[in-house]
């Protein structure tokens, strides 16, 4: 365990050092984040015109969902996208073999090797929006509520990571998976809105098949101070299931991996 922590510190230290070289990029990242947030707020605002509410959620409650979505998007740009898009390059160039030879878990190495500074402001903005909106919605944070919220945010991040990793793993067979990740991104945009805003069929699809509901709506319920045992257990079950799936899938993929140069 200590070895992994030490490795992680080295990984991120070097990533930080190399990225402070490109400061102008950060400005564009901030601009893009601002634009994205403004656009999302505007769209949710459109739904609230005429006082209909959105799937039974009030304006500040819907903003908690958006805050969590922004947080997840930030984690994707900070950790998931930079690392997992490199798996594809490594399969193509044959450098995956070097990773497999290292005396460390290959999934750990591939998932944490680097991080992008540009996504951090988005994580911050997401957390702020979530906290502010929860306060505006009148949530009273008790110890149990905070604990449930933290657990459910953890499960949401685990599910998101597993989905990304499974898709990135398919590059062992298909080499090019850029478009597959685009499909995932498009599907996850569904999480910008509470799942109850969708018609019945999509609601079921987003809960059972593609766990969009567990990514944003379920943690939002907990943040708003209405966590319930079924959702808590469901979320934890989903997270364990998806994480185990991603590991099993990676082991399976490795058995099919034939090195590029031979």
């Amino acid at each position: 365990m200590g070895r992994y922590l030490k490795t992680l510190r080295r990984f991120w230290g070097t990533a930080l050092a190399s990225q402070t070289e490109y400061q102008a990029n950060l400005l564009f990242d901030l601009l893009a984040m601002g634009g994205n947030l403004a656009g999302s707020l505007f769209m949710i605002g459109l739904f609230f015109q005429g006082g209909r509410g959105l799937g039974g959620w009030t304006w500040p409650e819907a903003l908690v969902v958006l805050g969590i979505y922004t947080l997840l998007d930030g984690v994707s740009s900070t950790l998931l996208r930079p690392n997992l898009s490199r798996i594809v390059t490594q399969v193509q160039e044959g450098t995956l073999d070097f990773v497999l030879l290292k005396p460390i878990d290959s999934q750990f190495w591939l998932s944490t090797r680097t991080f992008a500074l540009g996504g951090l402001p988005e994580i911050g903005a997401g957390l702020l929006l979530m906290a502010w909106a929860a306060r505006a919605a009148g949530a009273r944070p008790s110890l149990a509520v905070v604990a449930a919220a933290v657990v459910l945010l953890g499960t949401s991040l685990t599910i998101l990571y597993s989905l990304w990793f499974v898709l990135a793993t398919t590059s062992i067979w298909f080499v090019k998976t850029w478009n597959a990740t685009e499909v995932l991104r498009a599907t996850l945009t569904a999480g910008r809105y509470p799942v109850t805003a969708y018609p019945q069929t999509l609601r079921v699809l987003f809960t059972v098949v593609i766990p969009v509901a567990f990514l944003t709506t379920v943690p939002a319920e907990a943040v708003l101070g209405r966590p319930s045992w079924p959702w808590l257990l469901g979320g934890a079950g989903m997270a364990v299931l998806f994480f185990a799936l991603s590991r099993a899938f990676w082991q399976l993929a490795l058995r099919f991996h034939t090195s590029a140069s031979s």
Binding site: G55, N179, R185, L202
Partner: peptide
């Protein structure tokens, strides 16, 4: 390209939201 076409589904997602609304 088929996958890429699939990633353009956002308008259809929005359709279900707006009709429900």
């Amino acid at each position: 390209i088929a996958l890429w076409a699939l990633s353009g589904l956002v308008p259809l997602l929005m359709m279900s939201l707006w009709i429900h609304q």
